[in-house]
């Protein structure tokens, strides 16, 4: 096995009741990377993460996680992986300290009490350790959950939409922490819906309807999409948007505040399509770089087409 590849899976497929949720998914994640996992709701992100840590058995496909087989050696994987579930899943009727001590003891950590005390301090939860987990606000619950899954000093963190429903400040602090952990050599796979979070990742993968559609650094993914984008500002943008959407060569029209993003995969066709509108005095046209969001929305509409 290549010592630098932490996750290496090929052809993972999983279906529930005949509905394919993950289809022929292959991916590789290198050590020390923050790997963003993006995709719309129900695209198979959670299912993929669960297959990686042994909570689900793939119907077909194979691979390794930390060098252990994901199908036959999930017990060994569990010991070395920290998994943070999408929904808070620690015990609401236990206190912060009790939750952490339980985790420490299940993982068989030495000096459990001492480790828990350090963890509480590091998480900034000192003074509230006797508070019941169920009474914490969303941001603190998330912090506790992260504390619990980093407590056993895992080599790989699997975070399933860790920042859903968390305020921007807590979100930023969370990402600072993730970067600290990655700097210490921890590999992090994190699923998210937020574009700003995707841009904080070393590499990203985009998954929609069970298929992996794009993979690489943010720049690589944007470049690979070959999107030509124009930004339009001016009056009556709604009217313009409706007219543009119907034209051939225009693959995506999306409002951004007081302007409109118009993109197409074929630059020539796009330019031909918008030509008549560029003469209109009401609108100002400006060539622009495609954003990650443009790329994702474009990818998503195509994935749907395939079904």
């Amino acid at each position: 096995m290549n010592g630098d590849v932490v996750i290496d899976v090929q052809g993972l497929t999983k279906s529930f009741d005949g509905r394919v949720v993950v289809r022929d998914l292959s991916m590789q994640v290198k050590r020390g990377q923050i790997y963003g996992f993006l995709g719309p709701n129900g695209s198979g992100k959670t299912t993929t993460i669960r297959m990686l840590c042994g909570l689900l058995t793939p119907d077909s496909g194979h691979g390794t996680c930390l060098g252990y087989d994901i199908i036959t050696q999930s017990v060994l994987i569990k010991r070395r992986v920290g998994y943070m579930t999408q929904r808070f899943s620690l015990w609401q009727d236990l206190s912060i300290r009790e939750n952490l001590e339980f985790v420490a003891r299940v993982y068989g950590l030495d000096k459990a009490k001492e480790r828990v005390r350090t963890a509480i301090e590091r998480l900034g939860l000192k003074g509230r350790e006797e508070q019941l987990a169920g009474n914490l606000s969303g941001g603190w619950k998330q912090r506790l959950a992260l504390g619990a899954c980093t407590l056993p000093e895992p080599e790989l963190l699997l975070l399933d939409e860790p920042t859903a429903g968390v305020d921007p400040k807590a979100r930023r602090e969370f990402w600072t922490e993730i970067h600290h952990l990655a700097a210490d050599g921890l590999t992090v796979l994190v699923s998210t819906h937020y574009m700003d979070e995707a841009e904080r990742c070393h590499e990203i993968a985009y998954i929609a309807y069970g298929r992996l559609l794009a993979q690489g650094t943010v720049d690589e993914v944007v470049a690979a999409a070959h999107l030509t984008t124009w930004t339009v500002s001016g009056e009556d943008l709604n009217e313009l948007s409706e007219q543009l959407e119907k034209l051939p060569g225009i693959d995506m029209v999306a409002p951004f505040g007081t302007s409109l993003h118009v993109s197409g995969r074929d630059a020539e066709k796009l330019n031909r399509a918008i030509e008549p509108f560029r003469k209109d005095k009401r609108w100002r046209w400006k060539p622009d770089e495609a954003t990650l969001e443009d790329v994702f929305i474009d990818l998503m509409s195509h994935a749907e087409d395939n079904f």
Binding site: L55, K78, R87, L90, Q92
Partner: peptide, 11 residues
């Protein structure tokens, strides 16, 4: 309560 997922992901 959803805590089974935590429990199952532990060794």
């Amino acid at each position: 309560r959803g805590t089974m997922e935590s429990l199952l992901s532990m060794p």
